[in-house]
């Protein structure tokens, strides 16, 4: 299973990963539109991102959420009807929503943020 692994002890809370992610998928630099989110109220910070556990897959009423060959949980935008049931069942609060947007979104382990992280706090790994 391909997954974005986080190393909070290395994280310097620069939030570059959030900028990278939201800019890539929504063309906007907004932390709430990022699949990875850094909560820096604590030390080390909390790096919240999908661990591909698949809890959302069974909850989806339209079967819009599937697991690809690499073990990554994917959302089909054409099948998704935006009910957000997947957001509620996510045990790590990593299924994202932005009210007003039609579909939830999540980390698909694309690795874009790994490349821009200046502190080596992120890695794509096989688990």
């Amino acid at each position: 299973m391909k997954v974005l692994k986080t190393y909070p002890e290395k994280c310097i809370s620069c939030h570059v990963c959030e900028t990278t992610c939201s800019s890539l998928y929504f063309k906007e630099d907004k932390a709430e539109l990022s699949c990875i989110q850094i909560h820096d109220e604590t030390n080390p910070p909390v790096m919240n991102v999908c661990n591909q556990c698949q809890a959302c897959v069974a909850a989806c009423p339209t079967c819009a959420i599937t697991v690809n060959k690499q073990g990554v949980v994917m959302i089909s935008r054409s099948l998704c009807i935006g009910c957000l049931m997947c957001v509620a069942v996510c045990p790590t609060d990593s299924m994202r929503t932005a009210f007003g947007k039609h579909n939830p979104f999540k980390c698909i382990a694309c690795g874009a943020c790994v490349k821009t992280c200046p502190a080596d706090a992120l890695a794509i790994v096989e688990e």
Binding site: V87, T97, H102
Partner: peptide
């Protein structure tokens, strides 16, 4: 999600998610 064409989709989503 917006086929019913609500005037305030964010409030609808927020209220639904709270109940979920």
């Amino acid at each position: 999600v917006d086929t019913n064409n609500p005037v305030d989709l964010p409030t609808l989503q927020k209220t639904g998610l709270k109940l979920h």
